[in-house]
């Protein structure tokens, strides 16, 4: 999947709450509970299904954190793939409808 075309959205099978800068995510499908760190939380919160991942990295991660853009992009792609494998994020090369409220 070309990196410019990665769109991410939150799954409908989850409940999420932010606490002290970290996001707590509960997956009701398999009763797993995830705690995201601050950078992961920023990506998760920006997962509206319409904003390309590269744009999220550029406008959110690189603006808030002291990081090389290419490094941030590579890390974000790996993170998104892992969270997608757990059913927390939906990933597509086309815009998606975000299924849960932010």
């Amino acid at each position: 999947m070309p990196e410019d075309c990665i769109y991410i959205a939150r799954s409908s099978a989850i409940a999420a709450r932010a606490l002290a800068g970290e996001m707590m995510v509960m997956n009701s499908a398999d009763s797993t509970f995830f705690t995201l760190n601050e950078v992961a939380t920023a990506i998760f919160q920006a997962a509206d299904g319409h904003t390309p991942l590269r744009e999220i990295v550029r406008n959110q991660i690189c603006e808030q954190f002291d990081v090389d853009p290419e490094q941030a992009q590579a890390d974000a792609e790996q993170f998104v793939a892992e969270l997608s494998a757990h059913g927390i994020l939906l990933v597509s090369n086309q815009p998606l409808a975000a299924e849960t409220a932010r």
Binding site: F33, V67, D75
Partner: peptide
């Protein structure tokens, strides 16, 4: 003013 970057990561637990 930018915050210290940490690689995006998560901790997974079974409920």
């Amino acid at each position: 003013e930018k915050k210290l970057y940490q690689k995006p990561a998560f901790r997974c637990e079974q409920v």
